[in-house]
Design a protein around this nucleic acid. Structure first.
Lengths: 258, 258
DNA sequence: TTGCTCCTCACGTCACGTGAGGTGGC
DNA sequence: TTGCTCCTCACGTCACGTGAGGTGGC
């Protein structure tokens, strides 16, 4: 007594839909039918179906099963290929699990690049956004340095004040804060020479790096913070002329406003 | 200067199509557009896109990313789930690699159930088909026994003769071969008690097992072989009456034919 | 008649990729 | 005008799953 589609599927440990799918792909021959159109499967179909499901369970794509013939031949090139693919997949998944382990260990947000986990708790949302963007612009050595900075240099009072600085901060406050931040910035520029020329650590070019960094900083800080950053930058690089120019421009602005 | 779709995608290390896909799934907000309809992405979009690609790279499904909010929160339940899934996936793939290693080691056909690799070379195509089908009908202990039989009991002259037996084999040949095979079969029935009642090792029921086995055997052996098997079975189980009946039936058949 | 099986489309899933067909910018 | 970019559908991929809508068997 031949088998119905359901019986065949259950014998092979698969589903009716899968069997029909294999017919459509010409992996499995269609059997004779009864007068009413019902399919009648024979042992040959079962054997073939078992071959298909075995290979499919091993992870061989159906398209490859088709070209493997009956695959009862000896260990095929296709299986070697599959094995190599599996090796790669396993390695990739294990790397991911490694990253997840670090995330769990540090309770760090998943979106930070690897390595910043341990210092994530000391970072503001703005810091994190900047780091995410920088990691797309700078090379690994630069990111290493930034990580070092984050973990080794404690936030000063001035840093905290800077973070909290609002748009309406007055000029004296902005000037003082710029001056307070300058020494720390100068230290950084001494310790990390490349920061004077960040483009040198940007694989996609200095112009690209400058543009992206600028865009990020302008979006993430308010106007008062941007001025303070600019002041600290000018002081720490000894650009006194430009500092004088800035003060003059602000004088002019105030006069216009009043 | 805001970014175009392509620029944004490249900054984030992904593709234009992926970005558009995230829009369609409402994972990423659509930016303002220029008069000509071109999209203009800001830093906020880049930050969000980097979050999305990071999670997607970790293997979080996009639908889950959507419900994770900005996912900048601490290690989320979703990541624990993901980690557990990864653990399972890796284990499964490693099991598969283990099976592949056995296949390579024994140069055995992939479609045989695990364990039959080492004896595959001694098996005929018919043997392999039978084993594949039996493995869907009998439990592991029964399959273990069959493997033992295959590996420990060498093929006799009679076995080889049986395999080669064609439909036109004459009655004397059939009778002799049945008698030659009977002692081996009797040994099996002594050593493996359950073979007298194979249904006892069939998780899906004795009737199902009988039906499937019968179907398989009838399809894989020719009429002469089937008769020889029947003879050996009757002799080894001591069913002399039925053997006499068989001979009588064959006598009658010959008379009719002549 | 009822409930169950079998059949054949056709569309859905997942994360995009691949054109098609049209427009804008230089 | 040419070549390149951007845009929006619409369909394809992979291995089936999920109905829909209809028929046969008891």
């Amino acid at each position: 007594m031949p088998w119905s589609t359901r019986e065949l599927a259950e014998l092979a440990g698969t589903t009716v839909k899968a069997v029909r799918h294999y017919h459509k792909l010409d992996l499995l021959e269609e059997p004779e039918r009864k007068e009413n159109g019902y399919k009648q499967y024979e042992v040959s179909h079962l054997v073939r179906l078992l071959q298909i499901t075995r290979l499919a369970d091993l992870g061989v794509p159906l398209g490859r099963i088709a070209t493997m013939g009956n695959a009862d031949d000896n260990p095929d090139e296709a299986l070697r290929v599959l094995d190599a693919e599996l090796e790669g997949t396993i390695a990739r998944l294990q790397r991911i699990r490694g990253e997840l382990a670090l995330i769990f260990e540090n309770r760090s947000p998943a979106s930070l690049p690897a390595g910043f986990g341990p210092v994530a708790s000391t970072m503001t949302e703005t810091d994190r956004s900047l780091i995410m963007i920088y990691s797309r612009v700078f090379d690994d050595s630069a990111m290493q340095d930034m990580q070092e900075i984050m973990s080794e240099i404690p936030a000063t009072e001035a840093d905290k004040e800077f973070e909290a600085l609002t748009l309406d901060a007055d000029r004296a406050t902005r000037r003082q804060l710029g001056e307070s931040l300058a020494p720390g910035l100068a230290d950084l520029l001494t310790k990390y020479e490349w920061m004077r020329d960040p483009g040198s650590k940007a694989p996609r070019g200095a112009a690209f790096a400058q543009g992206t960094m600028g865009e990020a900083i302008r979006a993430l800080y308010n106007q008062a913070q941007l001025e303070v950053l600019y002041r600290a930058h000018l002081i720490s690089t000894g650009a006194h002329d430009q500092l004088t120019e800035l003060e003059a421009a602000l004088d002019a602005q105030e006069r216009t406003a009043s």
